[in-house]
Design a protein around this nucleic acid. Structure first.
Lengths: 347, 347
DNA sequence: CTGTTAGCGCATTCAC
DNA sequence: GTGAATGCGCTAACAG
């Protein structure tokens, strides 16, 4: 049945035209007679011809394929991200190589190299921990745009997409204000980090906009961990004028705050509202989830893909680290999430 | 910096050898002098040469890339599946095109066509609903092996990997027996289907092995739906000697059984143990999840990939539908899962 | 052991 | 409007 692949030359022969004519109809060129076009198309269908993109890519020295590598596809955050990427990439006529590194820096190097050999024209990567800023140099040098998502690689001269800390914290505060809270604490996080500053900034801004005066007693900086959350709520409850709600530096802190509340016989979400940035790697699965601020992973994927395609099409790779905001969503989960498959780590 | 891509001919020139020699060292051929090999490798590194797999593929008329298309990557089941595939595929030196169809049959057709044009040498697919058995004919005709996972396409002449119904039901029974149950019901499902027979077979077998005599009063066949589950528990509770546990035909039935129990003021998992096969598409997310029998998606992905690679390497596509068992895992989730990101549909 | 020759399937000048 | 060359980067015979 299949004596070998059927090529343009075959169909040219069968349609009684030349290969170039076939090539022209293939790319929908307008400079070909309607009659011949129809005939060629008929023969194409008849012979079951399939276009060989590999050959075309070779000839044109470019491909319509992008790579996406994530550190943990098992995490539904990244799965959603990949879906978002897939959506725009697909509708742009591209296909994506997808690889999972499982946080292995070696695997990451391998898959990126492999993808490069395969001629990807762009790469979206959520880097494994420990990724060096120089690791993507070869790519960008070769004119292949790279966009880093979710995590930031300080010093990497590529585009990156991370969550909008300011807007996220603002949204959290607005949410709590909307629920009627006025004494809103900011809990957890090391005060000397950029991320802390951004989130605290958003918190303060939203507070001001709501006409609530900032009280720095309510800012309790601790380790950005579960233990830190416990500590934070402990310190906050010592205040004369206690808070009734908290926006937490991240979800680990939020969980700790919940722990601390329960230890005081308070029910999180009922007696005390807690909102946390959803950006921590937590191996433990059975954690209470309350309202969290999190980026919409699918939207992030779409944006990343758009950014990448823009660079691919313009032919210029953005060599400078740009930080782009992403849409934030407030998820409300109304109870305990005990299922082990529930959403896991993020940042 | 980059005056264009550096090719074998460049490095041949620089190393003062011919292109074929370079090609030989590239593929680690033993018939090349150690000295020249070293020199060539040095030059390769020096010039920053990157292998062009596209050209190689064109020449050899084969590629080391496989396609995987899933109907819902958002579902962590499929994400895990993809990870499993990625693992074996990666270590075999392959890369995978990943696409999400979102249950769209058109999208599926498109991406499969696209992948084919890109020269995939094999395809793993969890077909969208409504996929026709003939849809993969072109692929297999061209000698491209296809393995269908999770869902079965009756009549499709390709390999498929679906859950081991017999072993799954056995495991469910063993689990319940281990919890001390002796009156175990089998609820839901249409009795005249192959799947029903297989699952019931596993149930009976495990019962026998546990020394419990089979009582066909305890087998209540109903529609494999949530309503069917309600009906089943209703009928079972009419028995003089009531069951204390049930293995359900699928998760929809299991949910219905839970509904029925609650209507009788019984707490699922406390007053009555329920286990269900986890293989239903349920759009609704906030459903109670109890113990479920489900295939290990990652393991399934690995097996699928192995199966595919075997066919690719042997050059022969298995034209007959083979059903292969997969490892089953019993998940125990101890409460209500209200989080919308919890595990969703499967089959 | 190494160099020479010839395509893989396609797109792209150029003539006609 | 259409056909005849040429080459993308690589591998696969053969020669030497």
């Amino acid at each position: 049945m299949s004596k070998g692949r059927v090529t343009v030359i075959d169909i040219a022969h069968a349609a009684d035209v030349s290969k170039s004519t076939v090539s022209l109809v293939l790319q929908g060129s307008p400079l070909v007679n309607e009659a011949t076009r129809a005939k060629v198309n008929a023969v194409i269908r008849e012979l079951g011809y399939v276009y060989n993109r590999g050959a075309a890519n070779l000839r044109q020295a470019k491909s319509k394929i992008v790579g996406i590598v994530v550190n943990d596809l098992t995490n539904s955050f990244f799965a959603e991200l990949a879906v978002g990427v897939d959506m725009v990439v697909q509708s742009a006529g591209y296909v994506q190589f997808l690889s999972n590194t499982g946080e292995s820096i070696d695997r990451q190097r391998e898959v990126v190299a492999s993808m490069r050999e395969h001629g990807i024209s762009g790469l979206i990567v959520s880097p494994a921990r420990g990724t060096d800023a120089a690791d993507f140099k070869p790519l960008t040098n070769a004119g292949i745009p790279v966009v880093i998502v979710v995590r930031n690689i300080p010093g990497a001269k590529v585009s990156s997409l991370v969550s909008d800390n300011f807007a996220g914290a603002s949204a959290a505060v607005e949410h709590l204000v909307g629920l009627g809270h006025r004494r809103i604490s900011f809990m957890g996080g090391f005060a000397n980090t950029a991320v802390f500053a951004e989130r605290l900034g958003g918190y303060r801004d939203a507070l001001a906009k709501a006409g609530i005066t900032f009280d720095d007693e309510l800012v309790v900086a601790t380790a950005p961990s579960r233990a830190g959350g416990v500590e934070a709520v402990g310190r906050a409850m010592l205040l004369a004028d206690k808070p009734t709600a908290a926006v937490c530096f991240n979800d680990a802190v939020a969980f700790g705050v919940c722990d601390g509340l329960r230890a005081r016989r308070l029910e999180p979400g009922v007696d005390f509202a807690v909102v946390g940035f959803d950006d921590v790697i937590e191996a433990e699965s059975a954690v209470p989830a309350l309202t969290t601020i999190s980026v919409d992973p699918q939207g992030m994927g779409r944006r990343a893909a758009q950014l990448l395609l823009k660079q691919i099409n313009s032919g210029k790779v953005e060599a400078e680290a740009i930080v782009s905001a992403v849409r934030l969503v407030v998820r409300q989960s109304s109870g305990l999430a005990l299922d082990t498959t529930a959403r896991r780590a993020v940042s």
